[in-house]
Design a protein around this nucleic acid. Sequence first.
RNA 1: GGCCCGUUCGUCUAGGGGUUAGGACGUUAGAUUUUCAUUCUAGAAACAGGGGUUCGAUUCCCCUACGGGCUACCA
Length: 499
Amino acid sequence: MSDKRVRVRFAPSPTGGLHLGGVRTALFNYLFARKNNGDFVLRIEDTDQNRYVEGAEKYIIDCLNWCGITPDESPVNPGQYAPYRQSERKTLYREYAERLVMQGHAYYAFDSAEELDKNRKEIPNFQYGQVYRDTLRNSLSLPQPEVDQLLADHTPHVIRIKIPADQTVSFTDMIRGRVSFETNQLDDKVLLKADGMPTYHLAVVVDDYLMKISHAFRGEEWLPSAPIHLLLWDYLGWKADMPQWAHLPLILKPDGNGKLSKRDGARLGFPVFALDWEGAAGFDGMGFLPEAFVNFLATLGWNDGSGQEIFTMDELVSKFSIDRISKAGAKFDFEKAKWFNAEWIKRSTAETLHPKVKAVLESKGVTIKNDAYLATVIDLIKDRCTLLTDFYPQAAYFFQTPAEYDLAAVKPKWTDEKTAFFKAIIEQVKSTPTIVAADFEATFKALAEEKGLKTGDVMLPFRIMLVGGKFGPHVFDIAALLGRDETVSRIEQALAAFA
RNA sequence: GGCCCGUUCGUCUAGGGGUUAGGACGUUAGAUUUUCAUUCUAGAAACAGGGGUUCGAUUCCCCUACGGGCUACCA
C-alpha cells in the first residue's frame, strides 16, 4: 500500500454553483496530491439526470482554475482513466451490479416508487432491508420463474445491495480514527437505478477502483454511507485496493446552525460561491484575490500548529497534513475572510495587483491611459483596501475630478480668508514646474501661517478639493501625483463650489 | 424516532494530566497619522454538565446535555 502512487479525486456533481465546502474539499485533495507527488483527478458525478444543470461542469472547472488548483486529469484534460464523466461510463456499472447479483450480494427489486413511498409513510422506521425485503417485490422474495419473466419483459427494476445481518463494519478514518457500524441498522441501498445509471454508492466504488484512487476525501455527510462502500469494496473483491478514507468536517452557517447551503449567501449577504453563479456574486466578483480565498479556506478546519495564518499555495502544499485537520465543523466567518483578503492585498505588489485593479476601475467607467501612473496609485492606496472593489472609491479621484464634495465638512467654516489663501496657493503652484510633495507641504504651511490661518483649517478643505471626501493618503502625495495643472484646476473648481 | 460524528473565548483555533489555558478575526480603550485607513500598545472574552481514574483533570474513561450529519431509483 505504501508504495502505491497517490491518486486523489474531487468528484462533484454538476448540479449548480460550486460552493465553499466543495472548493475546500477540492483544495485538500489538491494539497495532498501535490505534497505526495500524486495525481489530482476531477471526476464529474452526473448520474442523476434530473438534477443535471447546464454549464455547471464548466463552472466547476473554471472555479478550480481560478483557485489555482487545476486537476491533472479531468473531462477536459483526460488521462489514461478516461472518461471522467460518469454518464459516459454508464455501461460499465451494470456489469459490476450483475456480478454482485450473481454472487448473492445484490438482487433485483421491482417495487415502484409509489409503493415504497406508501410503506415509508405507513410503517414507522421503514427500511428496505432485512426486516421487510421478503415482503416486497424482488428477486429474493419472488419465485425464480416470475423473476425471470419480469426481467424478460423488461419490467423496470433496480438492483439493490443485500446487506448482511449481524455484522460490524468498521474502518479507520484518517481524520476520525476508528468508526464502526452495525449492518442491522443499514438498508439495502439501490446500486443501479431503473434508468440504468448507477447510484453514487456503486459509481464511487467502481470508479475509485478503476481510477486507482489511493485516498478518498469527502464531506462528513458521507460518513453514514461509508459502510455500504466498505461492503462493496469487499464484495467486488477489491478490498486490498480500497482507498484510505478521510471524512472532512462540514462548513456550517455563520448564524444559527446547520451546514452552509447555497441559499445562505443571498440570505446573509456574503458569497458562498467562488465565481459568480446565476447572478449571485462569488468571491471573485466580490473582490477577493484567489490567493486569499484559498488561504482562508485552507485554515477552515486545518492549521499547521505554528500560529501562522497567511500561507502561499506553496507553503500550504509543503505544510499540509491530514492529522492536523480538525474533527468538528467550522462556522463560516465572512469577517475573517475579508481580513485574509486585506492581508493579501497589502502583501501583493502593485505589479501583481495591476491587472485586477485595472479591471475593477474600467468596469466602473474609469479609463486607464498610463499604467505606470496606476501602479503608483496602487502602491499609495492598497493598505486601505479590503476588497479589490475598494480600489474604485479609493482610486477614482486619481483619474477623474471629484463628482461631488463633502460640503458639510467645509462650507459651514468657510471664510473669505480661506478663499484668498487658496487663490494664493494657485499662484504658488502655477509658478513651480512640478509639485514635489515635501516642498509643497512646506510652502503650503508657510503660506497658511502668513495668512494667519491654522494649517489644520486649510488641510481638510484642500483634501476635499482634490479627493472629494475625508479619506485617502497624505494630501501632498496626492497633489504631487495629480500634477501641477490638475491640482490647480481642482482647486479652482472647488473654490466655486465652496464659496 | 434510529444510526453515526462532534463539543476550548462571539467566531476560527493552539494546547494537553500539574500552564497566569496561547494566537488570530471581531470588539473595547489608548498612541501615531492636521482626513480616513494602515500600524502599534493595552483590555474584556473559553475548556458544556455530572460521575469516575489519579496525589492532581480542561486533557484519559463513562453517562447526560447540546450541536451537526444521514436516514431517496440525490449526490
